[in-house]
């Protein structure tokens, strides 16, 4: 067997003629090479399949509504509406009284056990809500901010945020959704993340992130999000989201010369030592800061 030496993209590069001469010679000399070469040439010989129905475009343009799959036939709908209104009022009342909202303030976290034994830890200045009554029908948590989930296996479990939905069966994962920054990290099992832009299945050790125009997949080695252990950790995150996290954690505000948006930060800060946290973040970026009273921090570049 040819040794790819932990290069898990070697063959992809080979197909693209991107190997170095040395790599190529070594590979060509191996016993495996002739078969790989046959797979390469063989797959080249495939004929690109074409439409069975060549008039598709004309049909779509001619009568798009007629073609739609899954269209419904009309039926006496007014009876249905009357019944639905009565039902809705009842359901709405039950829904309202069994709604649970968790919103820890600056510097706090809240650990909640959900009706099925799943747990969620909600971070500072975040809001999570779910419905006790409907939990058995739909395991859904609405989230704005950050929370970590440990889901008991069962029916699908959905975390719904402004930026997108995360769907799992039973696993451990973290969600951060605030303003324009959205990040989902999977620590165990698999989660499915659906946003307006993308649909991704994350495996353990991977995170998916969206902010501004970017969306990226990153690999992580942590076993739990660091904020659970009273730390916040960032990996190449634009500085304004780090400042936002500091503000939420310590209830402070920043003013003065705010750093440029392009600046990214990688590192951690503790949740129990304000001075140290600020030193760690701004020290590494060579930004000076001073306090103006208890709650305001002035930045100088």
């Amino acid at each position: 067997m040819f040794d790819f030496k932990d290069d898990d993209r070697f063959l992809a590069r080979w197909l693209n003629d991107e190997l170095s001469d040395k790599e190529l010679r070594a590979f060509e000399a191996s016993d495996d090479y002739p078969i790989y070469k046959k797979i390469k040439d063989g797959s080249e010989a495939y004929i690109r399949p074409d439409f069975i129905n060549p008039d598709l475009l004309e049909q779509i343009k001619r009568d798009p509504k007629e073609l739609s799959i899954g269209k419904k036939t009309t039926s006496p709908w007014y009876y249905g509406i009357a019944a639905a209104i009565v039902l809705l009022i009842g359901v709405f009342t039950i829904y309202k009284i069994s709604d649970v909202t968790v919103a820890p303030d600056f510097g706090n976290q809240a650990s909640i056990e959900l009706p099925d034994g799943s747990t969620m830890v909600v971070n500072a200045k975040s809001t999570a809500s779910y419905n006790k009554f409907f939990w058995n029908f739909s395991r859904t948590v609405e989230l704005n901010g950050e929370a970590y989930f440990k889901v008991t296996p069962g029916d699908k479990f959905v975390v719904s945020t402004d930026a997108g939905n995360i769907q799992v069966l039973g696993t451990e994962f973290n969600v951060y959704s605030n303003d324009s920054f959205f990040e989902v990290t999977c620590y165990e099992g698999k989660v499915q993340v659906t946003t307006e832009r993308n649909e991704n299945t994350l495996e353990a050790g991977n995170a998916y992130r969206e902010y501004e125009e970017k969306s990226e997949l990153i690999a992580l080695s942590d076993v739990q999000p660091s904020w659970i252990n009273n730390q916040s950790t960032f990996k190449s995150v634009p500085i304004k989201y780090v400042l936002n996290a500091l503000e939420n954690q310590y209830g402070i505000t920043f003013k003065g010369n705010l750093p440029a948006d392009e600046l990214v930060f990688s590192g951690s800060f503790p949740h129990n030592n304000k001075e140290l946290a600020l030193k760690l973040v701004f020290g590494s970026l060579q930004i000076d800061f001073k306090f103006e009273g208890e709650k305001t921090v002035v930045l100088e570049n």
Partner: peptide, 11 residues
């Protein structure tokens, strides 16, 4: 990168 890994694995 993920696609390149998939390609390698597939081969």
């Amino acid at each position: 990168k993920a696609i390149e890994k998939l390609m390698h694995k597939a081969l």
